[in-house]
Design a protein around this nucleic acid. Structure first.
Lengths: 256, 256
DNA sequence: TATCATTTGTTCGTATGTATC
DNA sequence: CGATACATACGAACAAATGAT
């Protein structure tokens, strides 16, 4: 029956057992798992062992545990929102995929310096001065939250007076301003994923064992000169990213 | 000194203590943390408590633990490879960002049926027949591995005989074949991230607490008709994705 | 090669706190 | 309020990997 006889640590055997029970449909998404006491009984192991097995499944994002209630099978494939990262242009007006998102708070404006990472993306050294604007956005339909950051080097702000005076201009308008300043814009975006830092977990409200998607978008002007950097962070549990791709003729882009 | 007096569980206080020690530069990337015995001494807590604190830091991807040796601060921001997801075209030849990757094994070819997820992306119902081709790729420079899957609906294979006969044609040539069949191709790609399943962890060789990036690229033919679906999975620890974006005039795309 | 100390991994037992119903 | 269920914490023992003797 529930007897265990497999390679690896005991708690991993129990975890594997529960895992395949879920896969077999014995425990369906949303349904509760047996309580710790029942699992102890079922597999004839101690409480710490059962708890380690549950912890492993939790780290995989397979189950969710609620204090005082029980463990529940998580319905994993639920990326509620697709953030379209495509940019469209109608005459002088630009539109991004998150233009319908709402600001939760007033944007935070500050001055900072390039780090090794942001400097490389902007084609600058480390320690160059720039404006920063942070916004906490939310999707009105689903409540999904995302952190948006704009970094504007002083060199770019010099090219367009409005940017220096109001760094908290919306990205879409920044694009328009830069276009008006004579730039023909393209963008390059890097996407990575990682586990959230403690503060990101709280502000983005990410559940257990869910990574965050992290994008870095560089706006390139004439001669592929980097103008501004935008970062977007969102819980991968709720959001996915969408890109539209067309086959262009090969053109050398700087490695980023 | 090392005394603890903060909100939350004891092990979280210890974790926070170590976390800030790392942030303060007391323990630098690559350097070893004190041993469990030393941490027990330092913070006057039991071994289980120290171990839970270490487990928490490990789940955040902040440290790496080696059995029999010790815990080491991880140098986190090191996405070694950028997989360029842009597609370029020279006449009849297409090129993708991973054309230089090598196949670790022979591609696995099989027949399968659409699931709810893949069916929706291909504009088909659930249970439609399709060819599947799985490839395990590796980047020769860094050894990074990635899983690539092509799903070809029978309806698409019917349009181009070569696809039915050799589903394991390389994606770039599939694009050429579909173009030759009279299609003008565009693509839409969704990016998500999640924790790896146990088998993905072993084949992609992902370290602890690192998510995987998961992309689903749909090739669209004339009238935005979905033709094939490609999936790419890679450890977010080693790889990031790159997209080139241009501002096109607005055009309605089906929500995916 | 073999042994040993160090360090992390696993497993048990037990007691108490806290959230949910 | 009590019953149930998960969370935290301590103690103890042995297993397994590592590196040096």
């Amino acid at each position: 029956m529930g007897e265990i006889q497999r390679p690896g640590a005991l708690y991993q055997q129990v975890a594997a057992e529960i895992r395949s029970s879920i896969a077999a449909g014995e425990y369906k998404p949303g349904a509760p798992l047996p309580s710790e006491a029942q699992l102890i009984e079922r597999y004839k192991v101690s409480r710490p062992t059962v708890r380690k097995a549950i912890a492993a499944l939790r780290a995989e994002g397979l189950i969710e545990v609620i204090h005082g209630k029980g463990s529940y099978v998580r319905a994993l494939p639920a990326p509620a929102v697709t953030i379209e990262r495509t940019i469209t242009r109608s005459g002088k007006t630009f539109r991004t995929g998150h233009h319908a998102w709402q600001q939760v708070e007033e944007p935070a404006i500050y001055r900072t310096k390039t780090t090794a990472a942001t400097g490389a993306l902007l084609g600058l050294g480390e320690g160059e001065a720039l404006f920063g604007v942070d916004r906490l956005l939310t999707d009105p339909d689903t409540g999904t939250r995302a952190l948006h950051r704009v970094l504007i080097p002083f060199a770019t702000a010099d090219q367009a007076e409005q940017l220096a005076q109001a760094p908290d201009t919306e990205p879409e308008q920044i694009y328009a301003i830069l276009t008006a300043a004579g730039h023909k814009l393209t963008w390059h975006e890097s996407v990575s994923a990682r586990m959230p830092l403690p503060d990101e977990r709280s502000t983005l409200d990410t559940p257990d064992a869910t990574p965050i998607l992290h994008t870095a978008r560089v706006t390139l002007g004439n001669e592929d000169c980097p103008l501004i950097l935008e970062e977007l962070r969102a819980s991968a549990d709720r959001a996915q990213l969408g890109y539209r791709i067309t086959a262009d003729s090969p053109r050398q882009l700087r490695a980023v």
